[in-house]
Design a protein around this nucleic acid. Structure first.
Ligand code: ZN
Ligand code: ZN
Ligand code: ZN
Ligand code: ZN
Lengths: 154, 154
DNA sequence: AACGGAATGTTATATTATAACATAACCATG
DNA sequence: CATGGTTATGTTATAATATAACATTCCGTT
């Protein structure tokens, strides 16, 4: 499902990046927020809010939905996590500083959501928006289909 | 919110187009499906499943959620309606025959979801997908922001 | 009329998300 | 280090969205 070399490093790096970003921006990277982000990265793929909740419950007593959703809101607002609307799931952003230019290739077979960037798409979206006198706040681009691995293509 | 000249005509046309398409494809454009599509077009903008349900209830006794969702599934699968995931809402497709190339400009102020087509975007998406050896089944592009009218731009 | 498949009805429940208010932690400032 | 304002979390309840599972009806074909 993902091909990071050492996944524990991959999680640690994501947490470290988040810490730095929050530091720089004077945001509070609290315990709850850190733990939620850690679980998101642990899955290293789309994870549902209630699955996070379940996994937290095992570690911390009595975490409730609002706590998880608040943490996810914080992480999403600050570009550390993406919400994938077509899955009602959340995934860690792998480059939080260029967070607005991302889109996803979502394999309906293996469930991977590959985060990509592409200037042509960003340009085309920007142009068509301005032609329509539309001021962009947020772009969601979710491409669903089947990935090469699942199709056996090489 | 929308600028069709005569909205009753606009609804009638949409229903007529749907009828033709279903005819051609040997699909059953049943009463429930017609009524749901009619309500979607009546709103002429994103409408929620349970709002459709409420409005149906006033006309038909005891319509239940599964009935509405089934009709919406049918209409979505056959390109007559789009689901807008970021709103959990549904909107009529204004050109069902070219249904796959659409995207939406969604104004968070007035709530309009303008359906657009743009070949540059379609191309860029197709290219990046094939570069990633990814076979597209479905593309969701939802651009949220503020429309020109709401910003007072002319 | 009898059959088979598709659509709808029905009951119940799963899943996703938020409102509203109480408490606790944090942090600037005196 | 007390005080007060702000931000975050805890807590309870419920809202909003969506589907499972099974029964019945409808509809075209034979
Ligand atoms: Zn990893
Ligand atoms: Zn795959
Ligand atoms: Zn209209
Ligand atoms: Zn607007």
């Amino acid at each position: 499902m993902h091909n990071c070399t050492t996944h524990s490093d991959c999680i640690a790096e994501a947490l470290h990046r988040a810490e730095e970003i929050c530091d720089k921006r004077d945001l509070r990277f609290t315990d709850v927020r850190r733990k939620v982000l850690e679980l998101v990265w642990q899955s290293h793929g789309p994870i549902k809010a209630y699955d996070i909740l379940d996994q937290l419950d095992q570690r911390i007593a009595a975490i409730k939905p609002p706590t998880v959703y608040r943490a996810l809101d914080f992480l999403t607002e600050n570009g550390l996590v993406h919400k994938i609307n077509s899955l009602n799931a959340f995934v860690g952003c792998s480059h939080p500083l260029r967070h607005r230019e991302c889109y996803f290739l979502i394999c309906s077979d293996c469930g991977e959501a590959k985060e990509c960037c592409n200037l042509d798409i960003v340009d085309a979206v920007a142009k068509t928006s301005s032609r329509n006198r539309f001021e962009i706040k947020h772009v969601t681009l979710e491409i669903t289909g089947e990935c090469g691995d699942c199709r056996g293509v090489h």
